[in-house]
Amino acid sequence: MSSIYLIDYYSNSIDSIIHRSSIISKLIFLVLVLSSILLTKSLINLLFIVSTIFILIIVAKLPFLKILKWSLFLVFFASLFAVSQIGYGLLPIQTTLKAMSASLLMLLIICTTPYPEIFSIFNRISTTLASIMFLSYRFFFLLLDEIEMKLKAIKIRGGYSGSLIKRMKNIGMLIGSLFILSIEKSERIYNILRIRGFKGKVYCFREHEFAPRDLLLIGIGLIILLGMFV
């Protein structure tokens, strides 16, 4: 089973002060910290941001190593870019750290916020945008399931044996069938959503109200941002 499903599990099944914070405070925190990551040119500041996010991941009771592992996907691509910056002093390290802190930050937010809560906030901007995001998210997971099942089927039916060309042919067949299947599936999912009453607006039942505890995240965000000017 793809470990990406764990995002849903972490955001819904764990209870921590970060999980209980309102989506508004999380978004303010996100904007403040992301701005700091973009603005800073100091390695010390970046290290401070990364360590703060690490602490928040622990406070949120998220599995530290798993989150770190996920963040490394982005770090890998950033490091490819950073290689081209070798010879510019600390710049390659800064680039890598910036990518790492941004991906850790995003993971912290999505692993502590159920997705209807995230998407429902976009209703305030545009219900269409919120619907697109909701449908894409929903579809992405179902498609992942399908890919996983098809890959298993190919493996079981001997699709990975034989020459490289033969194997590539089988994978090509899989991609082709997935394309057709994804069109059919999207139609089915749309119909199911209509049957279940979806009218283009994402609702969230368990939205956390703004409370004094939200000041914690906003406060940390402000400290990080002000740290850039010290």
Binding site: D8, S11, N12, S13, P114, Y115, P116, R138, L142, D145, K185, R188, I189, I192, L193, I195, R196, G197, F198, K199, K201, Y203, F205, R206
Partner: peptide
């Protein structure tokens, strides 16, 4: 009409069971 399909995987929408059951009434 209340509907239960053969393939329920596609029918379940909410992030948790509670949210999924609440999906239709919320939308209505």
């Amino acid at each position: 009409i209340g509907v239960v399909f053969q393939n329920v995987d596609e029918q379940l929408i909410g992030p948790t069971v509670w949210d999924d059951i609440a999906f239709s009434p919320m939308n209505y």
